[in-house]
Design a binder for these strands. Structure first.
Lengths: 205, 205
DNA sequence: TTATATACTGTAAAAATATACAGTATAAAT
DNA sequence: ATTTATACTGTATATTTTTACAGTATATAA
């Protein structure tokens, strides 16, 4: 498959995003509006190039007659197979193939925010937050978390799902179970890696 | 979801087949050609009806602006728009368009069993089962339930989500909250309709 | 009997859209 | 120095497409 120029890549992505959002392809004018072109011919030329290189096909004479032949970003769209990762005792919850227990077909945007994987909950430390053993918590990989967020944090080689509270040099990881105690970390003494935060949860009955 | 007439079913299938074949939706004229209609208005009217019943959505003013909301060929197709229904005080949780709060893109087979809609939880009666207010419980429409199942039951005009327990002529609907009491129904005196059972749950953090 | 819903035909106009043509500008290759 | 490829603007027009309106026909319900 021939390589695409920067602009051609943009146009192809634009078509795919539009298609995923609306269910039908964009017009030349809509591509222009999206990418800031001022002439429909700009879009036209890029589409012609994309067809020539085999990425799309254009049904001549039909409005919106664009179909994707070879998708660039088959990823991160709806109906993806999202990985489920066990909350392992040691090591980061990596997306390495050997850590993936299974995959669940769902939309990465089904919650308020997008997410990257499901973490399978072990233990009862968050039971009072309605988070049970074997629930799947949808995790968005980010270090941008604020107090009160439900976060995945790694301390040394241990990974845990807790409420986040940071005060000066101290980090508190708060459970939702009165039988468990808060983990307090002095950040001057010990490192803590925020792996991500929860944006949702699913449970199979 | 409202029932479709024979012709509406044909038109919906036609749109889906065309979409699968070409990657973009058909025009009114193309639907006519496919189904043997002689007036574009025939297609137009069927499309309007399909939109009204919630099977497709039409972007007015756009050519080929049809997108599938609920696929008929619901075979193994991931990424459907599953309806969310509020747990209303009165009446059945019907799939009528006016009761659908929104739709969530996900796989109807993401849980152990398939499901038909999400029910938005009101109140705290199931809190000890980790089911919070505003959680979305995935409901499979069925009357085939057994003791211990989490079920949606309608008593008179009231709909409730509780644990199911049936003994002879008596039905118990058991909450998971010590501040609530079990609803006992003598089936010789009062009717109880099992609308469905829960196969899973999702929550947005 | 009179509505009412379904299911169309036929026509036409307005709006959306593809697409051709004539240019401009820039960077890299020959 | 000239060509070639990329990357557009701007305009215009033929065609496609939506969509409104005026009818016809049939079956079912009130």
């Amino acid at each position: 498959m021939k390589e695409l120029t920067k602009q051609q890549t943009k146009v192809l992505a634009c078509v795919e995003v539009y298609l995923n959002k609306t269910g039908f392809p964009p017009t030349r004018a809509e591509i222009c509006k999206e990418l800031g072109f001022k002439s429909p011919n700009a879009a036209e030329m890029h589409l012609r190039a994309l067809e020539k290189k085999g990425y799309i096909s254009i049904q001549s004479g039909s409005s919106r007659g664009i179909s994707i032949v070879k998708s660039q970003q088959s990823f991160e769209q709806t109906g993806e197979q999202m990985p489920v990762i066990g909350l392992v005792a040691a090591g980061s919850p990596t997306l390495a193939e050997e850590n993936i227990e299974k995959r669940i077909s769902c939309d990465p945007n089904m919650f308020s925010d997008s997410f990257d994987y499901f973490l399978k909950v072990k233990g009862l430390s968050m039971i009072e937050a309605g988070i049970h053993e074997d629930d799947l918590v949808a995790i968005k990989k980010t270090t941008n978390v604020k107090n009160g967020d439900l976060v995945v944090v790694r301390l040394e080689d241990e990974v845990t799902l807790k409420y986040f509270k940071k005060t000066n040099h101290s980090l508190e990881l708060i459970p939702a179970n009165k039988d468990f105690s808060t983990i307090e970390v002095d950040l001057r003494e010990q490192e803590a890696f925020v792996e991500g935060k929860s944006v949702g949860l699913i449970r199979t009955h």
